[in-house]
């Protein structure tokens, strides 16, 4: 019922992201037969342990986008406190206003139709730089991030090399 307006909005976002992309970010539908599934590539933020990596992720939009947020899942191996083992991203901007069972987030941080793919991806970049260890999607990573930063950095380095298709050092 809503697919038409969702489609128009996604097309507008795709155009904007193509013509005027934020640095180090690419996103768009890989196969336009399904415009509701995008692939995104984000560059690991400089000065962090993920620096230089290119991380591919899948974005799946609901038919009532932008009323509901898309889902995001990394397609490469990831080790990060806010990313589940299967790659799903746990970040407040991707949570619909209704669902916050834990009461962690104020609704100001959550999804609203004025958000966009670009804002999501920028948030994810900043999440890579600064994990939020309150919401532990990956408990091991959260623990290591707190207690053994050196080891964490090493694992991140390996992941970065993998995303660049480079052999381990």
């Amino acid at each position: 019922m809503m697919a038409g307006s969702a489609l128009r909005r996604l097309m507008a976002e795709y155009k904007q992201l193509t013509v005027n992309p934020p640095e180090g970010i690419i996103a768009g539908p890989i196969n336009e037969d399904n415009f509701f599934e995008w692939e995104a590539f984000i560059t690991g933020p400089e000065g962090t342990c993920f620096e230089g990596g290119i991380f591919p992720a899948k974005l799946v939009f609901p038919p009532d986008y932008p009323l509901s947020p898309p889902k995001m899942q990394f397609l490469c191996e990831m080790f990060h406190p806010n990313i589940y083992a299967d790659g799903r991203v746990c970040i407040s901007i991707l949570h619909a206003p209704g669902d916050d069972p834990m009461g962690y987030e104020t609704s100001a941080e959550r999804w609203s139709p004025v958000q966009s793919v670009e804002k999501i991806l920028l948030s994810v970049v900043s999440m890579l730089a600064e994990p939020n260890d309150e919401s532990g999607a990956n408990v091991d990573a959260a623990k290591m991030w707190r207690e053994d930063r050196e080891q964490f950095n090493k694992i991140a380095e390996e992941i970065v090399r993998k995303t660049l298709d480079l052999p381990p050092p």
Binding site: P45, E46, G47, T48, I93, A108, E109, S112, V114, Q115, K119, L122, S123, V125, S126, A129, E130
Partner: peptide, 15 residues
């Protein structure tokens, strides 16, 4: 108070 949570302000001062 839309907060696009700008990533560029977030990373720790880059080395």
């Amino acid at each position: 108070t839309v907060r696009p949570i700008s990533p560029l302000e977030a990373p720790p001062a880059p080395e």
